[in-house]
Design a protein around this nucleic acid. Structure first.
Lengths: 229, 229, 229, 229
DNA sequence: GATGAATGAGACTTCATTCAT
DNA sequence: AATGAATGAAGTCTCATTCAT
């Protein structure tokens, strides 16, 4: 019964994710994964050749949870501004969940240092994921530039890298900083920071601002019209 | 001879940093740290109560290397634009070095999950470091806003958080992505991305640009066409 | 096969008893117990959580060897004098064997000082054993008093405590003293000393002495005139 | 200053006795003995060649505390009954103190198993002590027999061994049994049990018993005249 | 395929002892 | 003679992995 086997595999990965998130990879015992998955230790080794392999698959499986995170991005018919806003909202909405699972990713770094095989498999997948993410975001940007919604002078690559880096950086910081004090290390922080970047991306509305500038000397309003870019 | 003792401590920490960076915390053996530091294993335990404590101190000591990284920030008499450019350059210049040592930090996450004491000590110090960094950057921003060099509508907190997150995010990604393909995961990438953010911070030059905007439809895009990248 | 497991446990305890008796608890290495028991070191820890726990069980198991030592005591139908003589003979007969194993017990004292858990388990069992022993002896004494074989003025508790203490004291002394010089530190010594106590217990033969006593007024003092000897 | 040296040695032994009684020999660290004695670890080794030697001396020194315990025994001019009563009272009065220090002695057994030198030194001294004790008690007994205070049919050796064994046995049992339940494991227990033995030693009051014996042929007295020994 | 008892290499840590100062 | 930092041998215990059932 193939279903059983696949389900069993899933149960094992879920158990591994749970325990590793709680205790850390090194402190996690194969025994505990086995018992929490409801299988024997021997069965673990029927599915994964070693603890490290199991861990890499565990980390990778946790990334798959975010596959559905970027659906808005893919609706190419929607307005670019809506699409990118939807993306930002998805990221913000998933922040807390991702934040938890990023712990797993951190631990992968140790594992990777001692297993080149694990390194290649993990990093390869991460690169694919980031490439897809980058490409999706770039698509939106290009669409927006083409439609005139976004500034025409944007370097798509730079904006994309900055956007992704900002999200990752907030995630990273949320790992140790106190959201009560550093309030931007949070889902709302993601909304705010990505929102600010978004302002820098968006084209200034045609007429009006220009007029304003023409009319009023007050440089004060100028900065507002020139978004953060 | 107190010097000897301090120097010995330093040698141990340096050895630990070396080995842990190479092999990872878990794969590192106390024996190897001892022999590479030129002391006996017992001496290790005269200085650090446990492997974990030694590791936390190792990570923290690696952060101290970057204390000198922000000197430009502190020269309050310099022009805000120069100060923030100097900061960006410092970060970019230190990127490769920091990138290596961030491996240590990643490994700390595993350790932290199983030792509340280590967690408090490490996280506490990280928070202080980030607080200082944040405050230094915010000072520059406030000075620039006051001097009219930066836009007056900036939310200092947001800009600071975004700036820091961008740097951290690039650092994080450089851990696994290939700079040959994703060229922004590099010191130059830091320059480019932070530079782009900087553009969004900087006030539009007084009259002229505004005029340009007022008159010619396209020129407007000119400054914009020279994107931060 | 449950038998196997129990047998393995027995083999381990036997090996532990052997080695600990030879070298002492502290000088005994888990490796040696394991190899002498024909199992791996890991298996040792599958059966006993720690070296100390193994030791406590080893000591306790050695006490079980003496369970069969007091059968005569339990044949309540036998004559009290025979029963108590049988008991004395059992103790004397077991002296040399017990004497060896008392070494184990001595060592328990060190262990007990640093492990309250071990203390409770070991002392608890010892108390039970002594309580059973005490009760068995007291039963005989009471039966003998009732039957007129023993003196009626005996304080059962005192006689019991003295009897047991005498045996333990001889055992203790045999640990360091030389039976060649102090000949009573031996199985025969047990026979002699317990025999002497027995004389003090036994009622003087029927008539005659009573008569003697009859001459002197206070019959009350009679028992006192016939000392424990 | 020789005084200083002797005092220092005493301080070390006192510290060792303290710590070993609390934690047990194995759990006792040379560091702690040194610091509690107010000397450096190196100094310890100026006085005692090894931890084991220090321990043996510690145990032996604790026995010296009881040298003054048997003064009454030595006043050969006093009445035998008074002398033996004084001895019993001394032992009872010292019970609690001896009881504590017996812990030290128990631990010596482990040490002795791995160090023949320690064994010889410790056991040799113990034998001397017991020999002196035995001789002192035997003296009293002989004096009492000679004076008619004690029964003439006593086997001095048996009585002495029983007396000593009883005391040691109670001491041993007090190590693990609960005086609240087994009330004879106590100073009073010593009084009671030795008191009972004393009754068996004491000659029946002058005239009457003697008369009795005189009157009644031999048989009756035979068993009595043939003491348990 | 599943199980889980057995394995044993190997790690951290301790601590008696030394010896330069 | 005193000190106490340094030493390093050695021990307990862990746990990933195996394999007979």
């Amino acid at each position: 019964m193939p279903t059983t086997r696949i389900q069993k595999r899933r149960r094992i990965l879920a158990a591994a994710r749970e325990v590793c998130s709680e205790k850390g990879f090194e402190a996690t015992r194969m025994d505990e994964i086995a018992s929490r998955a409801g299988v024997s230790k021997g069965t673990l080794y029927n599915f994964f050749p070693s603890k490290e392999d199991l861990f890499v698959d565990t980390v990778l499986s946790s990334y798959q949870d975010f596959d559905g995170l970027l659906p808005a991005v893919e609706d190419a018919s929607a307005e670019p501004v809506r699409r990118i806003e939807a993306l930002a909202e998805s990221l913000a909405g998933g922040f807390d969940q991702i934040s938890q699972q990023i712990q797993l990713a951190h631990q992968a770094w140790s594992v990777v240092l001692r297993s080149p095989g694990a390194r290649d498999r993990l990093f390869g997948t991460l690169r694919e994921i980031y490439a897809g993410y980058t490409e999706g975001l770039a698509d939106i940007l290009r669409a927006g530039i083409a439609s005139g919604d976004f500034r025409t002078d944007l370097d798509v690559e730079v904006v994309t890298a900055t956007w992704i880096a900002t999200f990752d950086g907030l995630l990273y910081r949320a790992g140790f900083d106190d959201p009560a004090k550093i309030q931007l290390c949070s889902a709302d922080g993601v909304r705010t920071c990505l929102g600010w970047i978004l302002e820098g991306i968006t084209a200034v509305s045609e007429a009006t601002p220009t007029d304003t500038h023409a009319v009023t000397p007050p440089p004060l309003s100028v900065p507002l019209e020139e978004p953060p870019t």
